[in-house]
Write a protein that binds this DNA or RNA. Structure first.
Lengths: 190, 190
DNA sequence: AACTCTACTGTCCGATCGGTCAGGAACCGA
DNA sequence: TCGGTTCCTGACCGATCGGACAGTAGAGTT
């Protein structure tokens, strides 16, 4: 029941949309990779856009939850918990995150992408709100963006299994926590 | 002489290839944005692939130079100089870097992209060679990948002029240097 | 005036795109 | 055995893609 054609299509589509881009991935090649015809893809999902929506929906929901839990004001232990949640989100949904980051602008107009863009914007505003200096905002961007990018790059250029790799998770949490700790140290003085 | 149709086309093409993806950007839309017809685009560049090649050529040349100057063994002051060169490269050629990072896999087979991929690979190998621990490799990835991503994201979601912004450059150099300093500190002990 | 070269364009072509539609095969409870 | 539902398919359509090609306007040259 868990491995239906519909879920298989979602998986394949997510990967191709992330790798080749939404425009570059054709319904035919997605169907072929899933062992189906183009017509069958359109049987399960009414349109290419609907397939994209279904493919990124779980990531979007979890992303919204994590962004909502951002501790604008809070102690270092709350911040630590947030970083871990964020890293876990990136690990689990790195393909969807890759789509949001790299195609968020060119796919404007597609509702699910607009919702993701709104979340990113809201996240950025919340962060900028309590991070006054340019240097600290850059640090914030390098920390979170760097973590997101590193996961995609690692998967692209090596063959490590990221989902089950606690060492990588720990290293990411450590690096990002370190960067953000520098921020709260200086931001706390304003 | 500097602002010919050919150079204008290169600029427009670089931006559209980065934003919409190589597959998503059509010769017609590139020509339209440059005030020319699709036929004129193909007059100046024999094919879409040739246009891509011409658009990223300067970035690729400089990238090769910078990667070649990577100080596998060297003091902290050499490392500092390398970081500054790298950040300047990202600032100047961030659109091309964006293409290399995000479309390097899907555009395999195009010579100029293969050359860029080889450089990235060579860069990664050189780094991994003298960075033994997983934690430090992650730190390395977050530092350089995060810097590259942050520039593109900043340009995407804000309207700052990055080329002339010394504050951002300084913040990036500082952040990346800090991360890499942690690496040389621990890597020196092996 | 005739010629040449450069920059540019409109038209046409085959391939591929997303999407529609009619229908086939397997299984269903009645 | 039958009608209904689910899953899947090939054939087809209009649009758009990258690219080929013939031709034109204009500036120089002789």
């Amino acid at each position: 029941m868990a491995n239906t054609s519909a879920t298989q299509l979602r998986r394949v589509a997510l990967e191709q949309f992330a790798r080749t881009g939404f425009a570059g991935a054709s319904l035919g090649s997605i169907g072929e990779a899933a062992g189906l015809s183009k017509s069958s893809v359109l049987y399960h999902y009414a349109s290419k856009e609907a397939l994209l929506t279904a493919a990124v929906a779980p990531a979007l929901a979890e992303f919204a939850e994590v962004v909502g839990s951002y501790p604008a004001s809070g102690g270092p232990e709350e911040r630590q918990r947030f970083v871990e949640r964020f890293i876990d989100l990136l690990l689990e949904h790195r393909l969807a995150v890759h789509i949001f980051i790299n195609q968020g602008q060119s796919l404007k107009g597609i509702p699910v992408i607009d919702r993701a863009n709104a979340l990113v914007h809201q996240f950025g505003e919340a962060a900028v709100d309590h991070i006054p200096s340019v240097a600290d905002r850059i640090r914030f961007g390098v920390a979170l963006g760097g973590a997101a990018y590193t996961l995609v790059a690692t998967e692209t250029w090596s063959d490590l299994d990221l989902t089950e790799n606690d060492e990588i998770r720990a290293a990411l949490v450590d690096t990002v926590s370190g960067l953000l700790a520098d921020i709260s140290a200086t931001a706390g003085t304003h």
